[in-house]
Design a protein around this nucleic acid. Structure first.
Lengths: 127, 127
DNA sequence: ATAGGTTCCGTACCATGGTACGGAGTCAAG
DNA sequence: CTTGACTCCGTACCATGGTACGGAACCTAT
């Protein structure tokens, strides 16, 4: 349950340097030095995995920090409000990506068949 | 129909420096200097708008360059293949964002009501 | 023709999210 | 008790996508 930074990083599938980077940024805490260096536990791993998940969900490290702080605190209203803001911008992002998806599908269709000439990539994007 | 770099940048709602940056990166061409400097036309604006759209659709500048090159060329099969690759990664991205969306919604629900204590942000993400 | 606004160009700087490097200390096994 | 692996720490460097700066040239209106 207790591990050195190397194992910890491996547990989150990131590099040791990344852990230190997150510590500098305040996303992870730097445990006290004790008998033979700093030790990390499963709470830390949980936090690290959250960072990775949130990140792949499109959150910036600053935003993830905000979420982590809210999780630690107990102001439900603030947390709820922040989550709603994130949800709104996430929805916007998803809509954008779906528009691009439609354009790409259109492109693949128009680019198909034996027609000669260039693929109308820009045209597929409505331009 | 002909404009200076300032108008051109304004037409795409970007800064003059951004135009020059795109030129350095090969995303936009640098027109020949003629009578009183370089001039830009509606084809350039179209290209610029495409860059912006593709960008907001999550494409990196390098990828956009690839798309622009394909649009210029006439290898339909290559263009089609590239579009399919992009479509696949776009779908993955969209799925990821939807997972995050679900987590946020769960969070907002669990964070609601008058319950005391901290919001289970990490828990909402399944951690 | 002179002032003010643009343009041109190189170079430097910024934020984000890391990655690498080098030296010193520590720990465990042979 | 020495070797090798790992840790700690500061600092430097990297890519991406720009943004800013400063001097020189040039364009336009008065």
């Amino acid at each position: 349950m207790d591990m050195t930074i190397g194992k910890f990083a491996a547990a989150g599938n990131v590099g040791v340097e990344t852990i230190r980077f997150y510590q500098r940024k305040g996303l992870l805490k730097t445990p006290k030095r004790l008998e033979g260096g700093r030790r990390y536990g499963s709470e830390d791993v949980r936090r690290l995995l959250f960072i990775k998940q949130a990140q792949s969900a499109g959150f910036a490290l600053e935003e993830i920090k905000e979420l982590l702080d809210l999780d630690a605190g107990d102001d439900r209203e603030r947390a709820r409000a922040a989550a709603k803001r994130r949800l709104a911008s996430l929805d916007e992002r998803i809509a954008e990506l779906n528009r691009a998806r439609a354009a790409l599908e259109r492109l693949i269709g128009e680019c198909a068949s034996g027609k000669k000439g260039p693929c109308p990539i820009l045209a597929s994007f409505g331009l």
